[in-house]
């Protein structure tokens, strides 16, 4: 039995109803969790930048090697050199935060440009951009990054530039298909007939009014992907190098002690990775459900 209940006799317009009333409850939970993660990451980044930390992440304490959580003020314990894990987790965010934003910005900017070119003008541009995106997609991304790292230097900004460029085709194809969908409804044609310039139509009508939610969602999902790539590379030793902490190299260095029953040095960063990525993914998905909801009429 499914219940349908009329909540009020008189109903106004849908635009007057705030989104949290029409969204599914599970989406709201996900969004709250995702926003919490975003907030934590941001606050931690600021804390790490200002150096407002419980301990110095680089301070070696030979008396407290591999201390379990909650000893002498070390909330998450210490690692094999006696460094505070919590402080290193917080400072680890520095490793991906700015480079990640760079990658996202690059992906969105490039993707939007190509998407608009392909979707709005189409024809040869469409064919060309499809060709480029196929080319980029057909090359394993991790291999490409490793190749770049091997050829130049293990610099995280270089890696993130590559990530940004390789992510652009996904954004481009989304924008392209959105524009092609919008073109079927002919308000774009109507805007042209009104006398609006192409630039106004693209920026105002297409990107701002109809694509911004797509871009926000892509940014959120992009952040999750960036974290994953940064941590994988650092884990493999191609990303951030010791002694600078990154969640990836923390997991790597802690993993050696996992079998000895000392789980915390690797588990703490691993959980951080899991929970953060999950947060960004859930946020992206729920935003997708809410912003792109089909208004049932």
């Amino acid at each position: 039995m499914k219940r349908y209940r009329q909540h009020s006799i008189e109903f106004g317009n849908l635009s007057d109803v705030p989104f949290w009333k029409t969204a599914g409850p599970i989406d709201l939970v996900y969004i709250s969790y995702g926003l919490l993660v975003v907030l934590l990451v941001f606050v931690s980044y600021v804390l790490g930048m200002t150096g407002f930390l419980p301990f110095d992440p680089q301070e070696i304490n030979l008396e407290l090697l591999m201390a379990p959580p909650n000893t002498e003020g070390h909330l998450l314990g210490t690692d094999f050199m006696g460094r505070d894990i919590l402080a290193r987790l917080i400072i680890g965010i520095q490793a991906y935060f700015l480079p990640g934003l760079l990658a996202i910005a690059l992906a969105l900017a490039l993707g939007t440009c190509f998407g608009v070119l392909a979707g709005y003008w189409g024809g040869g541009l469409d064919t060309a951009s499809t060709y480029v995106s196929n080319l980029l997609n057909s090359f394993p991304r991790l291999v490409l990054i490793l190749l770049m790292v091997a050829a130049f230097k293990p610099d995280i900004y270089l890696v993130m530039t590559v990530v940004g460029i390789t992510n652009a085709p996904t954004v481009a194809s989304l924008i392209k298909s959105k524009i092609q969908f919008l073109k079927q409804k002919n308000f774009i044609e109507a805007a042209t007939a009104l006398g609006l310039k192409n630039a106004v139509i693209i920026i105002k009508h297409i990107l701002w009014h109809n694509c911004r939610s797509v871009l926000i969602i892509q940014a959120t999902l992009g952040m999750a992907e960036v974290i994953l790539i940064e941590t994988s590379l650092s884990y493999l030793g191609f990303g951030v190098q010791e002694p600078t902490p990154s969640w990836g190299n923390m997991v790597q260095s802690g993993a050696n002690y996992f079998m000895q029953g000392k789980f915390w040095p690797s588990t703490a960063p691993a959980m951080a990775i899991l929970l953060t990525i999950m947060g960004f993914h859930l946020l992206g998905d729920s935003l997708n459900n809410i912003l792109e909801r089909k208004r049932d009429q």
Binding site: R5, Q6, F11, L14
Partner: peptide, 12 residues
């Protein structure tokens, strides 16, 4: 025959 609009939480 009624239809339910979940966003308006009302019957059509």
């Amino acid at each position: 025959t009624y239809f339910y609009s979940s966003s308006k939480q009302a019957f059509s």
